[in-house]
Design a protein around this nucleic acid. Structure first.
Lengths: 171, 171
DNA sequence: TATTGTTATACTCTATAACTATA
DNA sequence: TATAGTTATAGAGTATAACAATA
């Protein structure tokens, strides 16, 4: 893997990272993940957002979750979500509304401005990441995606048992 | 992609994320990158490190860079690196030494303790991520890695022109 | 003057613990 | 009592701007 990799050991001057030449099975995937995250981070930064805020917008695209729902999705403490929503709200991207039949609960949703930004970023991210995959011929791109999909689904299935529970009935 | 994905639109209750079922070409790769990052983040957290600290250790494994070198590697401002090294040093993982022929410069290197931790985490990360890829048969795993490697190398080559410059002579 | 690094300052992000309000 | 959420507090991580020391 890139972080802890045996590759990329060029010189001792601490110079710039060198283009890796041969990667172990794990390394390549890890490096790819860093490349993807870096690109997403750049896109987010262009809009003065963090990757967490990006994920938040993605979640809110078709949901109006409560704070605890968001904490589950984002794997954050609820108090962290409070701050996250505070800042997004201050920027006019989301709003809190009180839930219908529960005086304690809150619902979070995109504002029109938040929705515009979300759509814009979605488009931009798809373009940028398609560009990344342009290194491959169409057939290989499809293979990569298919294999990545298998890994992701397998991972979700093995981790998401409790999550799947929610889904089992009328999923 | 997962962050901004059209997949994962289950219900409106903001429930747990559902295992994605069909992914666009980009989505699968993005989701895989989030899965990898999450696993790395968990490993880092077990040792009370951030992913940035993990990357730092990886860089120091076979280098003794200066602060500006580290800033370039990590794509951080030099002042951010000062803080990063301060904290790592406070924990006994790295040490600063003065460079031989330049009174301004500093060299950062792992302490013995830092090196032990680095090796331990390297092993652990390789095991964990191998586990992730165990969803695939050996042949498919090799295919995934090869394709990921192509994308990564292509990306490094297209971005790393200035970096490669350092490398061109006596690389 | 240019380069290397640190300091001062401010903000985001995150967690833990204690709290409020409602159920 | 239990649940949904916020507040208080603290620390990591990051950036910008100003600074010190050396080249």
């Amino acid at each position: 893997m890139r972080v802890m990799s045996a590759a990329d050991r060029s010189r001792h001057d601490g110079g710039a990272p060198s283009p890796p030449e041969e990667l172990g099975p794990v390394d390549a995937v890890v490096q790819l993940s860093f490349a993807v995250q870096a690109l997403l981070g750049e896109i987010a930064a262009q809009h003065e957002l963090s990757i967490t805020q990006l994920r938040l917008l993605g979640i809110l695209r078709d949901r109006e979750p409560g704070m605890l729902d968001l904490a589950r999705h984002l794997k954050l403490e609820k108090s962290s979500v409070t701050g996250l929503i505070d800042r997004a709200q201050r920027r006019g991207l989301v709003e809190r509304s009180t839930a219908p039949h529960d005086g304690r609960a809150v619902r979070v949703r995109l504002t029109p401005e938040g929705r515009r930004l979300t759509e814009q970023i979605t488009t931009q991210a798809n373009e940028t990441l398609s560009g990344l995959l342009d290194a491959l011929a169409a057939r290989d791109r499809a293979r990569l995606s298919a294999l990545a999909g298998v890994v992701v689904r397998h991972h979700a299935a093995s981790r998401g048992v409790d999550l799947a529970t929610h889904r089992t009935r009328r999923g």
